[in-house]
């Protein structure tokens, strides 16, 4: 089995793929997200965001806290439309 470290589980992206995108010039989390869907899945980047930030920092020589984070948007976790209507329970 090939050595493949998964960074974004929702969209199945590996560390190698992320590094290749950074090499190609996508040097922010938002740009990597838009070109690869990294962080667009149900977890909304909770798993991958920090790893991608570290990789960008390593590649650009920036400090981790200088890496711009994508905007946090609602909902905080996936929620059914029926629940937003107020008439449905999570297990229905």
């Amino acid at each position: 089995m090939p050595d493949r470290t998964i960074v974004c589980r929702c969209e199945d992206l590996s560390l190698e793929e992320i590094r290749e995108l950074i090499d190609q010039g996508f040097k922010s989390i938002d740009e990597i997200k838009r070109i690869s869907r990294c962080g667009m899945g149900p977890c909304q980047g909770r798993g991958c965001r920090q790893i991608v930030a570290q990789e960008i920092a390593a590649a650009t020589g920036k400090k981790l806290d200088e890496i711009e984070m994508p905007k946090f948007r609602p909902p905080v976790k996936p929620v059914k439309l029926g629940i937003l209507l107020g008439g449905e329970k999570e297990d229905e």
């Binding site: 909902p75 029926g82 449905e88």
Partner: peptide, 18 residues
């Protein structure tokens, strides 16, 4: 949630991600 589930009630079961 109100307007789109009116058009398509089956979408009540679908989760909003962002």
């Amino acid at each position: 949630a109100r307007k789109i589930t009116y058009h398509m009630p089956v979408l009540k079961k679908v989760r909003v991600v962002r």
